[in-house]
Structure formats: structure tokens, C-alpha cells
Design a binder for these strands. Structure first.
Lengths: 344, 344
DNA sequence: TTGTAAGCGTTATCAA
DNA sequence: TTGATAACGCTTACAA
């Protein structure tokens, strides 16, 4: 009984005693099909366990109903939530998600993107590892497939984007720390070759200025992802004669690294150092003390990106790039304010 | 200059002044091609920016060089690491990963699996949300595509598997606690409708017996993923007259939930309760105190699963199901043993 | 309302 | 060593 090859349209047609065109019409809910024929064909499909061949269909129609999502660092705490946002939105539109991990390597990233394009994904959602890479920028410029960038800014590339309003959260963070009396505030954030690194640094400097706080040189550090440096960085910061009394860990991947450094060096939070981290995750929420964080609706990042793509693929395509901005907010917790029992 | 449609074999052939068959041979490094022709064709491909159409190729060859990875809970801390293990292994073999998230819903899971099969993935790696579901089991039985199960046990399904040796870690955990003088040990783990839930419960009971410890009823609780119950469960445990002095949180998704409950209830670790959690993640390592954990090589789970699949797809296919077992080890940290300064 | 047949971009078989 | 040509499984004019 075991059929070796999966049944095709032809087999169903033969079984039902109709032409393959008719079967195709039934499958695609096409017009001009008698109810009698429809039920007969449906029965045959069931009987044979027919499953449509998506590849053949795509070859014919030019649409794959797939979206590629490429991220530099799949172990980022944000990744899963963004992916869920994308996936949920896509599923409801009948699209399937294709995942690509570039391991932070731009060359590899380029390879993955190329692979996805060969599979003719209908769209691409990208969180590039390095938006400044010339080869990557050249390659992206040629891409005809709709693109959505996640908090990235590729010079000269016209495409939809979902951006994070880092300034909002960083402003609130600096204001909060200033209000608590901190004047020497340090920042450790990601490298400036992706937008978050630049946006956060810029926003931080601007905020200091606005609060008339000194922008002490050396109090801003930019890190490569998964850098082992936080310990060294933090050690250097803590040993300065004008040691900062507060630190902002600017980036979801930066946060665990900084926390490890904090533990290794025995720095007490918030007594020795007030700490504001990025993103409301298990790591920040379950920390002792719970961390004050700059938070954002991570799920929405994915959902909005998917929506942008679906919009562009739809009939209401529209022209011109669209940009969606996700706000950030400050959630105050114990890492910046001592608990009552500790104060008393 | 902007070509609307991507160039195909035909265009390259015309540009190079050869037949499409020759171009195809060049692309596939086929035999019987003059160097002169090869360079000429290669030049044409470059000039036109030719990219092979993976779908058309797959339709012809019957191979997609894609693997589907379906997981019940994409926000599990294990997911990313497993995916990296799979991806790294696949990449080197020229395969691309297709991601499917079922959100813990079996019906949705079935849909996702069907989608992937329609896209003709060459293999499927599954971490099912509920291995006991009859509809799912029936569907899987019909699948001709190679399958690899991740720590799941579907009755009657013959396929390769990567299993976790939970007994090893749980034994070590119970032995460790017993050695510290604990006699009333509780377990909170995942539901028994997936293998980890059953394996962990069974191993736990067996370990208690081996250590001649009482298997007090009510000290074992099984939870649905993302259940809000841990607080209630833990509260109930802590209020018992014979309250346990130690708790094992059996499952990577269980751990954060239990920690939240611990914090909410103000239970002190390890003074009020010794705690052993699952998996060496940021959450467990950065906790205060750092958690004693049952750990496993999570990356290897993915890597081995991918390897099983590649082996089965290769010429050396072999027959009979293969099972790879990943060991678990106990990493002792502060959540079961007080730090010196706290003791002194 | 249904059937016939062309073609989507490849690979692979056969001749030349 | 190369070229014509038939599939792969499907959708879609166009014919009937």
C-alpha cells in the first residue's frame, strides 16, 4: 500500500476521473467548479493523501510565500521574541519563515542572504551584523526583493525599516540618574558599525549636555558583541580616580556581559554603582537587585517588520520607504534605587 | 540598465553563445567542458549577475537542501543554542535551515510541519509540544521524509532521535542534596506529555528510592510550559508542615518561572530552600546566589541532530533508527551550598 | 463548466 | 565535447 512517490495532481485527476486543470481549480478555490466535481475531487485528494508541491507552484506563480529573517546573533535575547512577532504575523497571512543565522560574520551573512534569495523568498528581514561593510552594501543595493531593516541604517539603501527610538530611553535613563544625584555616568554599548551603537552613544552625549553633566572622556566604551572586554572595561572604569557612580549597559547583548563583569569584580549594585541595563528579560528581571532597564516592545519589532513586508507585497504596495519607530521606556527597579530596608 | 526579471540559464546561454545545457554543466562543475567555454560562460554569468533558481533546480532534482526545525516554544533558552548547533552543521554541508514555531499548540504544530513538507524539506528536526497527541502521531507515521526527534518519544514512530540522559543529572542532584543532609526534596518539572517530563519524574523517584528517601506525595509537580502555577505550587510546598528543604526545577523553561515564584514569595536561597535548576544559562549563572544546575551540552543536541539527518540523507544511509544520548552533569554552585562568608 | 496545452528554470538523457 | 529536448508538478490562457 505504501506509495513510494507522493501523489501529484495527475494521480488525483486520474483517481477522480477529471483533468488536472479541474483538480487545480478545486485546490485554488477557483471559479466554475460544480459542487459535485468539487466533492469528488476533494474525496480523491483525501484518499490519496495528496499534498500540493509548493516548489512547483512557486516556480509557476513566481511567489513562494516565504520570508527570510537574517540575524547576526541568534543567541541575542531579543531574537526569539522578534521571531515570534514576525512568525505570528506571517502565519496569519499564509507565509512561512526562513531563518538565517550569520554568526556575526559579514561574509557569512552575505552567503546566507544569497542562499535565501536563490530560494526566492518574497521578502527579507535583516538585522545586519555590520551595516558599514562595503561588499554587503553593494550586494544589498542590487536586491530586487523587498527588504526590511531592523534598527539598521545602510547608507544609500532605500527600504522599509523598523527603528528603535533609543534617545527616548537613554534620555529618561540619564534624567533618572541625574535626579538621584549622579554626575559621573558611564556608558558601555555596542560597536558603532550598527545603528544601535551610534544612536545610543549620540543620545547619551546629548543627554549629558542637556543636563549640563561633564562628558568625561573614557566613560563611553563600545564593544563588539560577545566581547570578553566588559570585565576589563568595567575594571578600568571602577579604578579611575573619578570613578563613575552610575553605568548604563546599552544593549541587550551587553547586559549579561556587564553583569558577569560586575559579579567577577565584586562591584555592589547599587551601592558601588547604579546600573541601568537594556531590555526587560529574565536576566534583568530576576537579578538581585532587579535591574532598572530601558525597555521596548520587542515583539512589536518583529510584528511591525512582518507587516511592512506584507504591505509591500500586497496590492496596496505603495511607493517610498516606510519607517516605523518603536518607543523605549525606562522601568525603574532596584539597581538604581536602594530598597527601603537597605536604606534604613 | 535595470533588468526587471532576474536572468536565467537561457539569458546566460545567449550571452555566451552556447546552449543552456552547457551553462548548466558549468554551474554544476560537470564533466566535458572546455576551459575556454568554462571561462566564457563564467564571465557571462558574472556580467548578467546570474543567480541559480533553487526552486527550479529542486523541482527537477527532488532535493531542496533544506531542513525544517520545528519547536514548540521558540522562547526556550535552549532554542537558540540548538539552532546554532543545527545551523553550523548544516551550513558546512550546503543546507539551509527552515524555522517553524508552533507556539506550543499541537494543531498549529501540525500545520507548520505540513507547510514544511509541502516545501519539500529534505529532513525535519522536531521538538514536539505534545508527543502524545493522536492526530500528530498519525500524521507523523505517514511522513516519508527523514525525521529526527529532540528528546521526544513518539510511540510506534521509527526515526532517529537525540535523547537527553536526564537520569544522570537527576541522580547526581539527589545525591548531592542527600549528602548535604536534605531528606525532603521536591521536584517541579514539565508535563508528562513530553519525554523530559516523564524521564525527569521517573529518574527522580528512582533516585529517592535508591537513597532510601521518602517519596512524599505532593512533592512532585508537573507544569505546563509558561504556566503561571509555579508561584501557587511553590507556595503550597513551602506551607506544608513537612515542607521540603530542597527543590529541583526540572526543565529549562521551568527555571525562570520557579525563580519568579521564589522572589515573589521571599523564599531565601539556599537558607530556606536549596535549589537545583536546569541548564547553565545567563539566568542561572548570573543569579544571586548562582544556581547549582543540571547542565548538558545544548549546542551538541542541535549539532548531533543535524548530523543524524545528514547521515541519513547521504549515500551511507544505513537502516534502522539511530539514537544519540547527550549526558547531563551537575554543576554545584551557591544555591545549594552557602558561601563561606555567609556561614561564618 | 471542463479539458488541452504551454511554460515556469532547471537537470539529464540522448544524439550529434 | 556540445546541443536539442523531455521531464519535474504546477497554473493559466484558450478552446471546447
Amino acid at each position: 500500500m505504501a506509495r513510494t512517490a507522493k501523489p501529484g495532481l495527475k494521480d488525483v485527476a486520474a483517481h477522480a476521473g477529471v483533468s488536472i486543470a479541474t483538480v487545480s481549480r478545486v485546490i485554488n478555490a477557483g471559479p466554475y467548479v460544480t459542487d459535485a466535481v468539487r466533492t469528488k475531487v476533494t474525496a480523491s485528494m483525501q484518499a490519496l493523501g495528496y499534498e500540493p508541491h509548493a516548489l512547483a507552484r512557486s516556480l509557476r506563480t513566481g511567489q513562494t510565500h516565504t520570508i527570510g529573517y537574517v540575524i547576526g546573533d541568534i543567541s541575542s535575547p531579543l531574537f526569539a521574541t522578534i521571531a515570534r512577532g514576525i512568525d505570528d504575523t506571517l502565519q496569519s497571512a499564509g507565509f512561512t519563515l526562513f531563518l538565517g543565522n550569520s554568526c556575526g560574520n559579514t561574509q557569512h551573512e552575505l552567503h546566507v542572504i544569497k542562499q535565501l534569495l536563490r530560494r526566492r523568498v518574497d521578502g527579507l528581514i535583516l538585522a545586519l551584523a555590520d551595516e558599514t561593510d562595503p561588499a554587503l552594501r553593494r550586494a544589498l543595493a542590487d536586491v530586487q526583493t523587498p527588504l526590511v531593516l531592523l534598527d539598521r541604517d545602510v547608507a544609500g539603501l532605500k527600504c522599509d525599516r523598523v527603528l528603535i527610538d533609543h534617545a527616548q530611553g537613554i534620555n529618561a535613563a540619564v534624567a533618572h540618574l541625574h535626579a538621584l544625584g549622579h554626575t559621573r555616568i558611564a556608558l558601555i554599548t555596542v560597536a558603532p558599525n550598527i545603528r544601535p551603537g551610534r544612536a545610543i552613544s549620540t543620545a547619551f552625549s546629548a543627554a549629558l549636555q542637556r543636563h549640563r553633566l561633564p562628558a568625561t572622556p573614557g566613560l563611553i566604551a563600545a564593544l563588539a558583541p560577545h566581547s570578553p572586554q566588559p570585565t576589563a572595561n568595567l575594571a578600568a572604569l571602577v579604578q579611575r580616580p573619578d570613578r563613575p557612580t552610575a553605568l548604563i549597559a546599552g544593549g541587550a547583548t551587553i547586559t549579561p556581559a556587564v553583569l558577569r563583569a560586575v559579579h567577577e569584580l565584586g562591584v555592589r549594585i547599587p551601592q558601588d554603582l547604579a546600573l541601568i541595563a537594556y531590555d526587560d528579560t529574565d536576566v534583568t528581571a530576576l537579578h538581585s537587585p532587579p535591574l532598572t532597564v530601558v525597555a521596548r516592545d520587542v515583539y512589536a519589532i518583529g510584528a511591525q517588520a512582518a507587516r511592512l513586508l506584507l504591505d509591500r507585497l500586497g496590492a496596496n504596495a505603495g511607493t517610498g520607504r516606510k519607517t516605523i519607530t518603536i518607543p523605549t521606556t525606562l522601568i525603574v527597579r532596584g539597581s538604581t534605587v536602594r530598597k527601603l530596608e537597605e536604606v534604613g
